[in-house]
């Protein structure tokens, strides 16, 4: 008992305050080496512009409002697509995890669709929707659907049957059983799906914007390629990395808030 009580203190003692900065050490070092190599003339600016040039390009685009607008458009598409695909995937995961009938009816079909690479549908999607918003939303939703569906289903199916039996013995109704046992038990797995889905969300969106769009980050990168603005291309790639990190951090935060009971999540 005393050991457990002393844990937070021990953590404070052994981990310095700079802990939050530690993960950024490697990216920062890479930037510095990159800058040094560019200044020393080891890397041709045509292959890879110096970070300072990229930053300058970013500043210019930010100033003109172009960068903000493109990020916003991409962010909006990503969130709406994610919301649509995620909700449908979650709903199917719940239904098929809880009902044999629903599972028998739809799971085989969904597994078949899952094995089609969704980006292979781009030509078809363009024919259906043109290069309209709905094309991008459709692709993002489709990409996000499967990881959320599969992991929700897996989470629900693997809830400890002993706990479910306990819940029944103690007189829980179906609703209570779901709220108090099944859903919390499936949550860690659902979060795994969520994080996978976030990765697929950016991937799909950028590919879709690169091929068929008139705004957004992917479009900005394609335009820059046409005009040989390599600094803007590199800038877009760096922004993808940052956005991916932001999405991941957000889902981790959510995990920490909802899974504080889990020994694996209470530590960090």
């Amino acid at each position: 008992m005393s050991l457990i009580e002393s844990l937070p203190k021990v953590r404070k003692l052994t981990v310095p305050k700079a802990d939050g900065l530690l993960p950024w050490l490697v990216p920062l070092a890479i930037l510095l080496i990159w800058q040094a190599a560019s200044v020393a003339g080891l890397v041709s600016p045509r292959v890879l512009p110096a970070p300072s040039d990229v930053a300058r390009a970013g500043w210019k685009l930010l100033w003109s409002g172009e960068l903000g607008r493109n990020i916003w458009v991409s962010f909006w598409r990503a969130s709406i697509g994610f919301l649509i695909g995620g909700s449908i995937g979650f709903a199917f995961g719940l239904a098929n995890g809880l009902s044999q009938l629903s599972s028998k009816l739809t799971d085989t079909t969904l597994q078949m669709i899952r094995n089609v690479p969704h980006l292979a549908l781009i030509p078809l999607v363009i024919l259906w929707f043109g290069i309209d918003e709905s094309a991008k939303l459709f692709l993002v939703a489709l990409g996000v659907f499967f990881p959320v569906y599969l992991n929700t289903l897996h989470g629900i199916r693997t809830v400890d049957p002993q706990l479910i039996e306990m819940g029944r013995v103690y007189g829980m109704t179906d609703g209570e059983l779901f709220r108090r046992v099944i859903f919390p038990g499936a949550l860690p797995s659902i979060f795994v799906g969520l994080r996978f889905a976030l990765g697929i969300m950016w991937l799909t969106l950028i590919v879709a914007e690169t091929i068929a769009a008139s705004s957004g980050l992917g479009y900005m990168a394609m335009q820059a390629r046409e005009f040989m603005q390599i600094d803007v291309v590199v800038l877009s790639i760096l922004i993808y990395a940052l956005l991916g990190k932001v999405a991941d951090s957000a889902s981790r935060l959510l995990e920490r808030l909802t899974l504080s009971w889990h020994p694996a999540f209470s530590k960090h």
Partner: peptide, 20 residues
């Protein structure tokens, strides 16, 4: 096995026993 709900605090685990 204890079969406690890992996501519920000790007190709410005991409350489960109250049934209805």
């Amino acid at each position: 096995e204890p079969r406690l709900l890992p996501w519920a605090r000790v007190l709410s685990n005991v409350e489960v026993g109250l049934g209805r």
